[in-house]
Amino acid sequence: MNPLKLFGTGRREQSRDTVGAQRHTVISGEVDVSHGPILYLENVTVSFDGFKALNELTLYIDDGELRCIIGPNGAGKTTMMDVITGKTRPDSGTAFFGQTMDLTRMSEYEIASVGIGRKFQKPTVFPRHTVFENLELAMRADKRVWPSLWGRLDGQQRDRITEVLETVMLTGQQALRAAELSHGQKQWLEIGMLLMQDPRVLLVDEPIAGMTHQETERTAELLTGLAGSRSVVVVEHDMAFVRSIARKVTVLHEGHVLAEGNMDEVQNHPAVIEVYLGG
């Protein structure tokens, strides 16, 4: 399987040079990654009733990198994704997509349409829609109201859905309602929806929960294949899985970065050992 083919045409690479000439999104203009990072979180603090879920968190994700984020329960991993996707507004600090796009001032749908896709910790698909329709809804397209009323799927779009159905191994289930899928299949469907969005950054929260060993391996293959042309941020508790895909690992603890480096560096870091084994 050639992972680069997952996104079909490679139109994205082209539009990066021609500065959004062909693209039509709510926010015009391409993400500016000329300085390396694609995501900039700086001194982000989020508090819930005085409790700081994120505490002066500073984190950069490079364009094209695969980053694993680990940390104990309640470390703020999901909250970090909430900040990036506009679900939660930080009390202080900044979040930028590329050099120019201030995520804290954009709404959820704008953030999605400029190319940040997200898979939730709890698989969330549209239960009453078929698997096919779930992918169709997620597909990168003009998502405004009137075009949705008149629009019809063209052949190319159908092919794209068929392709992703194969990638996520749901070809046989395409006419089933998503509610009828097993937990693992729902995870895959959500990954499929992420692929359909053709995002620049994929935020993946605990992707392998409920998956068999084989499915886990396939997920690892998929995510590592995507990195390079996209940036992938994976939150996962399963250390074996993280080890199998990780290049760079960030450890979050109590809302800020505890350690960063490759897997071995991180695992031998005294503060990390302290948090995971001590206390």
Partner: peptide, 11 residues
């Protein structure tokens, strides 16, 4: 799933 619809880019 209102939130899901938002996060795949629908206003």
């Amino acid at each position: 799933a209102e939130d899901r619809a938002r996060f795949i880019g629908y206003k």
